[in-house]
Design a protein around this nucleic acid. Structure first.
Lengths: 233, 233
DNA sequence: CCTGTCCTTCGCCCTGCGGCGAAGCGGCCG
DNA sequence: CGGCCGCTTCGCCGCAGGGCGAAGGACAGG
């Protein structure tokens, strides 16, 4: 059985606003320098340094020195999944009484800047299954066939390449399987939204922070993604 | 998108050792008075009162006044599941480097006092699928056929009925589906352990708090549970 | 109505922790 | 090699928040 204070050890690392802001910034999957993280947390370099040391010691972030910069990223997919879970649960817990979000949320949503839920997982499987992307160092690379196919769909590959990571896995907390993050994940989501293949669902309640993430696959989107990548509605 | 400090709001409630101890005490499913919780947390009544007010306001515990006592319990199954998740992840995260617990843990384990993992989920599905249990107010009730079948397996139904809740769902964090908690869940676990249908797996490391929860389904257990409830090894 | 019990509110202390400025260290660039 | 820059360490301050004792409310029982 879990020891009485088991959660406290890690929870205390998440409970500090500055650390929470840093972890949130890292959820995109990028590696950020200590200075960048200090800025997003709104604190000075010394404080950021101390926080990052604690997060690293707690096993939540991995450090990765490079020249005079020190890059930080989340230590593992499990940490990312835990943060997304806790973030979701935080919102689920507070207004627990009336919260029937269930199905639509699991079907399709935004995970930060890319597609998640069953749609995100199906896209990932479709891209890999058709050989449009193949495993590469630190994530995935696009094959020539993939580049052609993605360009035909309207995905801005140049923009995707501009990101720190072109394509990498992101654990989907409802499906427990990877969906696609990184520059490609972001551009695919942008492409789908731009062409109205997915649309944002209206908020069920005023100010529901979760509502902005819920998506619906349109008939046109289901047709295009289905015939090119085998994604089912 | 999850707001940067979404986790912090709830995490701060779990990060305090006294509050963590209280929540841990409540994970058994019982309702406890403020005085009892003060004692398990090792603090005075005023401090406990303040903590409980914050936990209630944060939606983690529900209060339930009765005469001059105030009973407290976890606000929902979701909160219990979240705590189990965080407790498990805390242990998963800290020694992340060498921790190949994976498969055995997902296959069968104890969730507090009842069976969880694929085994727990399969049991739940078997009981419901065969009509041994049917939905009832606040959880599940046993049908006459279920009572007979459970008694034949050796489950102490009288003890199960003595619990505050006879049978209710508990979210399984690895399977993301419900398994059975409440008095019946507890007695089924006890029955399986008593007859050596499941056995505890030895700890891989000294003092591993997770190790005490890992279970293995024995051949005899697989046979009995398979032929009566369709549970596969 | 008084008494005892359980719980809360109030006022106070005090520790722990986060924040900053200054100083130190090390890599990179002219 | 000197200057710059990013990051860490050190020392100090300030404050939020957790702890307790004392006092105040509510409820049950005699």
């Amino acid at each position: 059985m879990t020891t009485p204070a088991a959660f406290a050890a890690t929870a205390i690392l998440l409970a500090e606003p500055a650390r929470a802001a840093m972890l949130h910034a890292l959820l995109g999957g990028e590696s950020l320098t200590a200075g960048e993280l200090a800025r997003v947390a709104g604190i000075g370099a010394p404080a950021a340094s101390a926080h990052l040391a604690r997060l690293a010691e707690g096993g939540l972030v991995a450090v990765h020195p490079q020249g005079r910069h020190r890059y930080h990223r989340l230590a593992s997919e499990e940490v990312a999944a835990m943060l997304e879970t806790l973030g979701g649960l935080t919102e689920a817990v507070a207004p627990a009484r009336r919260w029937p979000h269930g199905e639509a949320f699991r079907a399709a949503r935004l995970c930060y800047d890319h597609l998640a839920g069953r749609l995100g997982v199906a896209l990932h499987a479709g891209l890999a299954g058709r050989g449009w992307i193949i495993p590469a160092a630190g994530g995935w690379a696009a094959t020539p066939a993939g580049e052609a196919g993605l360009a035909r769909l309207g995905v801005d590959l140049a923009a995707a390449r501009g990101a720190r990571r072109f394509a990498c896995d992101c654990m989907d907390w409802s499906e427990r399987r990877a969906h696609l993050a990184g520059g490609l994940g972001r551009e695919i989501a942008a492409c789908c939204l731009r062409q109205h293949w997915v649309t944002r669902l209206p908020a069920e309640r005023e100010g529901d922070p979760l509502a902005r993430r819920r998506l619906r696959l349109t008939p046109e989107g289901a047709r295009r993604l289905g015939e090119t990548l085998g994604v089912a509605a």
